[in-house]
Design a binder for these strands. Structure first.
Lengths: 228, 228
DNA sequence: TAGTGGTCTAGACCACCTG
DNA sequence: AGGTGGTCTAGACCACTAG
């Protein structure tokens, strides 16, 4: 917990800058010395200072503008990075055995997808206990080879990772009351609070897939932040 | 939607590398040419290539190891960055008028905090409609000046931003059934699915505050990802 | 042990923006 | 208009690690 990282190079500068911010030597909103000045103080090249400050700016700790200089962020915008793992990985990382069962597979259409769509519903298990219900729609005009896959042995979740790539995506998290169907599959009571993740992915302008993951009651997603 | 960004410098290299990955010229798992080779191909300095590849590695698109080289990530780890704004900001960005009301303020203790703690419960409104219930515990041994604040006019959410800094934090998202009290405050029915965010922040080893935000039914958190 | 990425340097030019 | 950060360069040394 208290190991001394003993930073060197640009990370040492980053650490020192962070120290001064936390120590209120450079209070929020204040303009800190320019890169040249800091480079001179730390006895290094300006590029090294730049590297350190740029990383802090990306983290939201600093705000940098040309000519205006670098200021300590007034509202240290908390950015939490949520890692979205493969469902199989997530289950196995919990030390549980992964299980999978296809519930339904049929062609149809979907409001967010152009042309025909493949609808796949499946359950993912952790140690034989339902963990998450996957309800997915795959665009058959964009990913026609999905027609040849039964999704009986491999989940659409994993199959798509191997057979499709995306350029952008959109995720929303919400709490939903379990419908009768969802409740039944997850072994919960109808109306139970369900953590839901809706994902939409695109390849350029083409919508590839839309998926809703309904997690078993009690599920929680966790993340860590470092701030100022 | 289709504006031509016309990248230059290291961003152009980044774009080209991404293009080759998406075009499957460099399939997942494959080792791509070394920095020197790419620098020669693109006619730039190695540092410029390094900048581009390093950014992609940080985004999870590439995996880099010394001596082994740079490989296209097999599982493009989806990292979604969730921005945690000030509650006031979040409400105002929705075009609603922000409102605040303190519900309770009392001293006590808290399992996660050492020493005495201040317990503050408050409601945040969007256009006179309850938006989120804030139940917070503040460590009085770490932030003693909280004793002098009534939290009648300013929320603990904002007050802490001005009066405390943190070095690390921990956030969990979950879906919870509304308790009778929560339901009453949010104007929901008991048992309704509530999106809950639990946050814990630390300054070094000292726990500063623990807060639970219970959002009004229908609330959703949204984020965008760019991937491979 | 040799090859790869990680980092630093000293200098330079440029884009941007505030005063 | 001038100062600030953003970026590039050419070269160098080092740390790590795969073979």
């Amino acid at each position: 917990m208290s190991a001394a990282p003993q930073f060197t190079g640009w990370q040492a500068i980053q650490a020192e800058v962070l120290r001064r911010i936390h120590a209120r030597e450079w209070p929020p909103g204040q303009t800190i010395p320019g890169e040249v000045a800091l480079a001179q103080e730390f006895g290094c090249a300006r590029a090294t200072v730049n590297r350190a400050l740029q990383a802090l700016a990306e983290a939201g700790v600093l705000e940098r503008r040309r000519k205006a200089g670098t200021r300590v962020a007034l509202h240290p915008v908390s950015k939490a990075t949520v890692t979205i793992p493969l469902i199989r990985q997530e289950i196995e990382e919990r030390g549980a055995a992964y299980g999978y069962r296809l519930l339904r597979r049929q062609e149809g259409t979907h409001a967010m997808l152009t042309g025909p769509a493949l609808h796949v519903t499946a359950l993912h298990f952790a140690d034989d206990t339902p963990f998450v219900l996957e309800a997915r729609h795959i665009s058959l005009s964009v990913i026609p080879q999905a027609r040849n896959e039964t999704f009986h042995e491999i989940s659409a979740n994993e199959w798509l990772l191997r057979n499709a790539s995306y350029t952008s995506g959109d995720i929303t998290f919400s709490a939903q009351a379990a419908s009768a169907e969802v409740a039944q599959h997850l072994g919960a009571e109808t109306g139970a609070p369900i953590f839901v993740m809706d994902r939409m992915t695109w390849d350029g302008e083409a919508a590839i897939t839309a998926v809703r993951l309904s997690y078993v009651p009690g599920y929680r997603i966790r993340t860590v932040i470092g701030g100022s």
